[in-house]
Every structure is written in structure tokens, then in C-alpha cells.
């Protein structure tokens, strides 16, 4: 029973990441509205971040902030199995902040397009471009 649960938990996690990634990809390809496309891009991005973070998870480990940081036993021996792998967290932390900066640029582009064509729908913009 425990084996079954752990298999399901493991696979369910990976399936959900792939589902989220595909939801984002589908929105970027098929949605007509530019803001919806940007939402899709962000969902794609967070799905990848979720995948990376989940790589670092270790059973029976704690958060990557060392205990006994200061105090009498500073030279306490640290065992790597006691702490979650911090490297994926570092990579993804900067990715989130860069993600919000690119989100700002994407929304700025959407506003520029709206000012020019007075619509956010992709097909209406394409019709107006063809007419010119």
C-alpha cells in the first residue's frame, strides 16, 4: 500500500508538471487574445520552475538554511542528506524575478499594440494589417 501511494505520488507530480506546461503551450499557440497568451506564457514558465524545484526535494530533509549557524558549536558537522538540495532554488529564484520583468515588457508591447489597432484580438489585428 505504501509503495503504491509513493508511486502514485511520484508519477502524479510529474504528470501535473507536464499538464501545466502543455496548458501554457496550448494557450500560447491557440488563444486569440494577447493578454491570454501572456498568461499562458507565465503558466509555462511556472511549470518549468515547479519542475526544477521538485528536483531538489529530498525525503526526510529540511529547508536549506543551516542550523547552528552561530553560537557555541559553529563547527558543527553538516551532513548533506539533512538538507534539501539548494542549487535548483538558486537558479529558479532569479528566474522568477526576471520573469516578472519580461512580463512587464510583454504587457508594454500589448498596450502599444492596443493603442495602434484598438483591439487585443489577434485575428482583428491581422485583418487590419492586411487592409493597410
Amino acid at each position: 500500500m505504501t509503495d503504491l501511494i509513493s508511486t502514485v505520488v511520484a508519477k502524479y507530480n510529474y504528470w501535473i508538471y507536464i499538464t501545466l506546461m502543455m496548458i501554457g503551450l496550448y494557450a500560447m499557440i491557440a488563444k486569440n487574445n494577447l493578454v491570454k497568451k501572456i498568461v499562458g506564457m507565465n503558466i509555462f514558465q511556472t511549470a518549468i520552475i515547479l519542475f526544477y524545484v521538485s528536483i531538489g526535494v529530498k525525503k526526510g530533509a529540511t529547508i536549506p538554511i543551516l542550523e547552528h549557524g552561530h553560537g557555541p558549536d559553529v563547527h558543527h558537522v553538516v551532513h548533506a542528506v539533512d538538507y534539501i538540495n539548494p542549487l535548483p532554488h538558486v537558479l529558479m529564484l532569479t528566474a522568477i524575478v526576471v520573469g516578472v520583468a519580461t512580463l512587464g515588457v510583454a504587457l508594454a508591447l500589448a498596450i502599444r499594440i492596443y493603442n495602434n489597432y484598438n483591439t487585443l484580438e489577434e485575428n482583428e489585428i491581422l485583418t487590419q494589417v492586411r487592409e493597410k
Binding site: 509513493s6 505520488v9 511520484a10 508519477k11 507530480n13 510529474y14 521538485s54 528536483i55 531538489g56 526535494v57 529530498k58 525525503k59 526526510g60 530533509a61 536549506p64 538554511i65 543551516l66 542550523e67 549557524g69 552561530h70 559553529v74 563547527h75 553538516v78 551532513h79 548533506a80 542528506v81 538538507y83 538540495n85 539548494p86 542549487l87 535548483p88 532554488h89 538558486v90 529564484l93
Partner: peptide, 30 residues
């Protein structure tokens, strides 16, 4: 899922977890 022996947790990251405190005296490894 959450396997302590997975490749991501065995090669590089133990170095950072074990040496960060002696090399930089910062408890937050991230």
C-alpha cells in the same frame, strides 16, 4: 520523487551544503 540518491542531489550539491558555512559563514545556502 524525493529520492535522496537522485543524480541532482549527489554530485555537486553536497559540496555547497557542507562547505558554505566554513567558506562564507552564511547559514542560508541559497
Amino acid at each position: 520523487w524525493s529520492d535522496p540518491a537522485s543524480p541532482a542531489s549527489t554530485y555537486l550539491s553536497p559540496y555547497f551544503i557542507e562547505k558554505t558555512m566554513e567558506e562564507t559563514s552564511v547559514p542560508n545556502i541559497v
